[in-house]
Amino acid sequence: MSDTLLEIKDLKVHFPIRSKHLFGGVTKYVKAVDGVSFYIEKGETLGLVGESGSGKTTVGRSILRAIEPTEGQVTFNVDGKMLDLAQLTDKEMRTFRKHMQLIFQDPYSSLNPRMTVRDIIAEPLVAQELAKGKEVDERVRDAAALCKLNLEYLRRFPHAFSGGQRQRIGIARALISQPQFVVCDESVSALDVSIQAEILNLLMDLQAEFGFTYLFIAHDLSVVAHISKRVAVMYLGQFVELAPTKELFYAPKHPYTEALMSAIPEVDPDQEMTPVHLEGEIPSPINPPSGCRFHTRCPYVQDICKTEIPKWQEIEKEHFVGCHFANTLTLNGVEIPDTIAAAD
């Protein structure tokens, strides 16, 4: 496991809901993340998809301890030794932050409008005192250049920039402390298609150059598919499937993954979408369904699904599924394009 960078075991994040009574205590919990285990290898991109309310953002933020996990372990490989992040004190955590960063979704709200671009990018260096004086300026210039930002922009304030350029500033801030691990939380979702492609390219270039490890969270399946080596699918606080990208898209093993794949609108008027119909709505994370959480909407539901929680099992190499019938169901993925079919 020497090339594992991060290992997450049974991660849980429960948010308390206070009762409305004057002195009432906590009565309920929103189980945003409820027992998630996975690992991320050095230099890879792990995609994380799920619909709103699935808890994917919470997973990313709790790994960074932007939200304190309720339970579970997040261990980080520091020079071969696995370090449990939950054990770090606040102060230790602050100095550890240089190893991990977050790129936000909203390029507007994530930059302090009252700071110059230079100060924004320099923040991690200055806050953690990683560099002083001239070195700060030098490193800011390097980071800006890497993100293809015009160096003249450094004196300006964020209001001077478009969404794409702001996102570059956010990326420069994230990479300046030379982190090993970067969480991209819907980092291209707010951008126009033509800008989104550039930012995706930039993220991939940076990874190739510096060996960053990404956790790439998004709801857009084709974007995730494009950038990720492996993809995890999340539903109601839990992982339902985790597999190498192509396997997941072309040969899903979980009914929910199948439903997701069938809903991707193909950029092809000849290929009509035939989405798998899911009954009802995503249930509340306060009171998740018993057994398999997907059973209320699953088209293949059996009695056992309502009572027993399916095991998270590795059915093929690196292909994990949480479904009682993972081995027996025949599910449809995305249609394999001719180019790949021929190559195989």
Binding site: R94, K98, Q101, L102, F104, S110, L111, N112, E123, P124
Partner: peptide, 13 residues
């Protein structure tokens, strides 16, 4: 606000 979270994640006290 995101930028305050960003500052926390940058290690600001």
């Amino acid at each position: 606000e995101d930028y305050v979270v960003a500052a926390t994640l940058s290690g600001a006290g």
